Computed example of a mutant assay.
Amino acid sequence: MTARPVPASTVARLPIYLRALEQLTDDGVTRTSSGELAELAGVGSAQLRRDLSFLGSHGVRGVGYDVEHLQAQVAAALGVTGDLAVVIVGIGNLGHALANYVAGTGKGFRVAALVDAVPEVVGTTVAGLVVEHGRDLEEVVRRERATIAVLATPADVAQDLCDRLVAAGVTGILTFVPRVLQVPAGVDVRSVDLATELQILAFHERRKAAARS
């Protein structure tokens, strides 16, 4: 039987649902309704039910969802039930912060290696790992069997590093570099552009200010 395809828009909301479920677990809640979970996630209850139906979870009328079971379902759908090795490339201020953040979450991901090309950075210890030299990037990726990488480097070297990561076996890249990366089919790139996000917020602020005037 072929698995039902999950829309990209639903996939984008699954981490939000997982965070809400983790919050409920931390609060000692064992059962939740679609309304309560939707409110925590900031979506409509109908939308939440549609999204969860792709995972085969429909809840029970009058009873709701078992929080622990649903949390496990969402985590499994996202693929964060194991110990995915992540290589972070570029250990400047941002890369340093990202390394500590990922190392501290301990939920499905593991910072396997840190790589940089700056002599003053190479050999230092960040998040319990010694920063390795950029010339050894392919060897590091293969040694750690990493399929996910985070790029936090200057824009002018990002495409070359991206090509090297893909050639070494990386199939998922999270980039904080303000440029579009070209990758072959089968490689997923997620881009976080802080400047773009701030510009979008500025746009909404202007709209709200205009409405108030």
Rank of each mutant, 00 (worst) to 15 (best):
P5G: 04
P7G: 09
S9T: 15
S9G: 09
R13I: 03
L14M: 11
L18N: 11
L21Y: 08
L24T: 10
T25V: 10
T30C: 03
T32N: 06
S34I: 09
G35L: 03
E36Y: 03
E39L: 01
L40I: 05
A41I: 13
G42H: 09
A46D: 07
R50Q: 08
F54Q: 05
L55H: 11
S57R: 15
G59E: 08
V60G: 09
Y65N: 05
Q71P: 03
A72R: 11
V74I: 12
A77S: 15
T81D: 13
D83P: 06
V87L: 11
I91D: 00
A97P: 07
V102S: 03
A103T: 10
K107Q: 13
A112L: 10
A112Y: 14
D116N: 07
V122Y: 06
V122P: 06
G123M: 08
G123E: 12
A127E: 12
A127M: 13
D136N: 05
D136H: 05
E139A: 01
V140Q: 04
T147C: 00
I148S: 15
A149G: 03
L151W: 05
L151F: 01
L151K: 00
A152Y: 12
T153H: 06
A158K: 02
C162R: 00
L165R: 03
V166M: 07
A167W: 06
A167S: 05
G169E: 01
T175V: 01
Q182Y: 12
Q182C: 07
V183S: 14
A185K: 15
A185P: 03
V187I: 01
D188Y: 07
A195C: 02
E197I: 05
E197F: 07
I200F: 11
I200E: 14
F203I: 13
H204V: 13
E205Q: 08
R206Y: 11
A211M: 08
S213Q: 09
